[in-house]
Design a protein around this nucleic acid. Sequence first.
DNA 1: CTCATTAAGTCAAGTGTCTTGACTTATTAC
DNA 2: GTAATAAGTCAAGACACTTGACTTAATGAG
Lengths: 401, 401
Amino acid sequence: MNDSRPIRAKSGTNHEGTSAHNRRVMIDALRINGALSRADLARATRLTKQTVSNIIEELERDGLVSSQEAVRRGRGQPSTPYRLVPEGAFAIGLQIDRHVTRAVAVDLVGSVLVRDEAGLPPGGPSNGTKVILDLVAGIRSKLAGVVQQSEKRLVGLGAAMPGPFGVAGSGDDPWMMEAWQKFPLLETLTAGTGLDVGLQNDAAAAATAERMVGAAHGIDHAVCLFVGYGIGAGLILNGELYRGTNGNAGEIGMVLLFADGKSTPLEHRASLASLYQHLSVDPADPGLYARINDLALRGDQSIDAWVEAAAVDLRWSIHLIETLFDPQTVILCGSAPEALVNRLIAAIGPLLPSIAERRGRTLPRLQPGMADPWSVALGAAAGPISRAFDPRFAAILKDSL
Amino acid sequence: MNDSRPIRAKSGTNHEGTSAHNRRVMIDALRINGALSRADLARATRLTKQTVSNIIEELERDGLVSSQEAVRRGRGQPSTPYRLVPEGAFAIGLQIDRHVTRAVAVDLVGSVLVRDEAGLPPGGPSNGTKVILDLVAGIRSKLAGVVQQSEKRLVGLGAAMPGPFGVAGSGDDPWMMEAWQKFPLLETLTAGTGLDVGLQNDAAAAATAERMVGAAHGIDHAVCLFVGYGIGAGLILNGELYRGTNGNAGEIGMVLLFADGKSTPLEHRASLASLYQHLSVDPADPGLYARINDLALRGDQSIDAWVEAAAVDLRWSIHLIETLFDPQTVILCGSAPEALVNRLIAAIGPLLPSIAERRGRTLPRLQPGMADPWSVALGAAAGPISRAFDPRFAAILKDSL
DNA sequence: CTCATTAAGTCAAGTGTCTTGACTTATTAC
DNA sequence: GTAATAAGTCAAGACACTTGACTTAATGAG
């Protein structure tokens, strides 16, 4: 009687799935193209004018879009463009890093409204959880002071921290990141905030940020090479962040390189960690960021040596990414000081030959992305916004409800 | 007046999209789980019994599913399982290789019904096009002799050949593959056969085959490392083949490795091409395949040396794939002789440490896949079947019609 | 200045597909 | 023998997109 082999199947869909998808498509179109009229939207989405009208009416009621001044565009009735209402939705982004945690609140179009940071005491989650929850609570109350109805329009909390997740330790871990990676962060944050919580690694967060407001805006195949304390790649494939089986896709820093009879992970050679070691400085020093920016601007010699060496590895990393992912473009971003990133970009060129070298390219093979200590927190916040509003296969299925 | 910036947007969907998706979900569920009753399908897909009944009735009318003997499963009315009807659809697969072209006809469940091959004369497309079109025509007429209504149920022609596509030449090209890669193959095949034609590289085809009938059956994140004349990776991400911007994703053989001050593409070190060079044999020799299989079985010394060297590079390739794609499993397949693949698998272990090394794995990190000279042609044929029947985001959208 | 033309957008009825809830059928467990 | 359980059907209903005619508002040609 009890056969009970579990049956695996994808979920079906129904009218609600259709409707949810079409709403998302409208929002996406307005995000990519700016304000559009109902007729524009109907043509672009292949839906009928009537359907678009109904959806736009509903989105307007929900406070997600609003009409602008009618514009005359030649013959025919003037069109009424609609735009996204930034205050239509908010999300909180949380970055957990080795010795600091940052939080931001962003709106529907990815503008940062509130930001704050706090030092993380040593000892990992047992000491840090309260700091984080307090920081998030502070951001929420500040947000409530800045805009109306923020709590009602809060779609979620996105967290980002260095990966990889769920893997036995690498050993060199002065800041207990491994303890954080094993800690039930999702559950703790959900319980502590009552919000919908998502988690991604810092490179994925950077890519999410680039897709919402940066160089990957409106691009469906892009890879962000993220240079931070470690290095990682955030993958935008088919217009969505690709996570892999366990959220660890893109951990390029863990690629082992063999030379002189020993193996070294890529990120031991090209990352801020390697720079700090090269300079023999204390990574926990709060003034370090500014000091390195300054050194990079002045063309300091010891920085130069590191830049040259790191550029070799980053050049190869870009070649690797192009060869394996065939993206439209690669974006170099990081939580590194901007001057340093600029030096790196200058030193990386010219790129290695690869399949990305083809006639008729419209985008450069390599583009600079955000180099801002807050970009990871922004990307963390962009996660819930994207989950809630971007068109995705999963959002159509019944089991997404 | 003529604003005419092109508006970019994803396509919306409607009832037909919903219905098309649900039909695909049914077929997918039957493919993965074998025969299922309407009630089983309703639970698995989260649709109602009534909806499933209607869809199954329609699929049965279309000849895609058929009922089996009712089975008693304890209390309650016995259930009537439905299964996929293999003869419900057919597709032709075409492999274009350096000196040979192979074609197969497969049915809805991926069984090969007819196969044939022909030598490709030197000179590239100008001499080879006729051979290929004749081969396909022959397969079609043989198929018509084996099954009823084959032409009516033919969903398309899938072609596979070594990549990369659309890239300036690599130089070493005695078999004019570059000419083939530049040739408007899709157009020629479409015009010459009247069928819907798709094109992928050989590694992608191997992955498509593994997903339909091999080790990746029912798995949503898998990478096939394909060892052929070159090497490549076929990427199954989120349950679909990932192609990249230009169909070149996964071209791992083109990854440049730096050693001793010079750079070498990975596939110069680990591929059949490297083996042929190592053995100083002529790759065009038609008996080569059997001879190498024989040598591998006998434990030949010169093969051994190559296996040991290639295993080092393949071991690293697997590590690289695990680190960048975070798949559930890696499948080693190839158009190499089976005995050779077995030797390679034995020589590759133990694998390098990576993020794939985790507690609670259910699948092995590395699995053997098909090692059959016909697997690429089979995968090529599986492409149209998958496009026509597998659940995919694109199939829901209005512009897919 | 007038009026045909063009285009945006609305109205109201129509259509397709899934859902609901009651019902029928067939089997097992007690 | 009868209650419980489960598969599957029936018929009406709900929902979201579509259709085609209509209204509104502008331009441009004569």
